[in-house]
Amino acid sequence: MGNVSTDFRPLIILTFINHLIIEAPNGKVIMAAANVRSGVMVRRNRAFYASVAPFFAIFVAFSIFPVVFSFYLGLSDWDGFSEPEFVGLANYSRALQDPVFQKAIWNTLYLWFWSTILTVGLALGLAVMVNEYVLGGKTYFRLVFLLPLLVAPAIAAILLRVFFTSNGGIVNMLVGAAQGQPSYFNWLASEFWIKPLVVLLVIWRWTGWHMIIFLAGLQSIPRDIYEAARMDGVGRWAIFSRITLPLLFPSLAFSIITATLGGVQMFDEPFVLTQGQGGTNNSTTTLGMYLYATAFSQFDFGLGAAVSWYIFAAVVAFTLLHRSITKRLGA
């Protein structure tokens, strides 16, 4: 909630796990040298609590409390004004029966699947090309694909709207030029095209980020493996599929879970692209948008809270699934 950027969260999780593994022996050494006087201990403990106190005071008040309260809200019927009423799991079943919610699940899965596959695939290709085959300008390639990430999702959606406007938009001009007659196709109102447009936005913003992750992974692969393979006359495709891909597996797994966590919670891009409407017939209403609409347009706070727990369940499910897959494939 209001944290730095959700974009970045899984990366730090990975770093943290690495850190625990690397630092664990260090902790033991300290334990062994623990013949300190108790006065010193008390002072040290006090110093510890003092240093983490500012963080936990704010964190408990504004992050932990809302989550606990959200659990209560999910079990209540409340519009924010009248007396809240305990309704058990009614909100959870009400959400499931709502066709718009069902559509939002489907839309979210569609956007998650295609944006993840295409972004990760493209970034992987680009990273391998930049790492192994490009003749020069590596720094340029590292930086240039990152630029779209600096553009807020909401602003990127504004730009996309301008370029895809039905009347005089640049895309329709190009289509018109290609087919020899003017095109006035309304991309943004199309039930079919609006989802690919959201995917396009995600690809544009995120490819550079994944590429940097892959480049970092590629650089940790020893060069002489490639030299040896090339000496033996192994083809480019075989080098990629037999050497690069397996050795890149940790980066790949990390990249996919990042894209997945972002995809499940997608809000800004489809919201701004459809001006908050979710497209024709809710064709690109995501779970996040459904939550927003129930809470802040219909003031059905209980239903909104229930939906947020469904999103949480999806995050947990995807994280567990990801863990079991990476374990089985033996990272």
Binding site: G2, P66, L73, G80, Q265, I311
Partner: peptide, 25 residues
């Protein structure tokens, strides 16, 4: 405390959105 802080990283921000809004009110 460290484990708890770490665990909260998995909480999607949307989980706290509605109660946070009420709290700010």
């Amino acid at each position: 405390l460290l484990g708890a802080t770490f665990a909260t990283l998995f909480f999607p921000p949307s989980l706290a959105l509605i109660p946070f809004f009420l709290q700010m009110g």
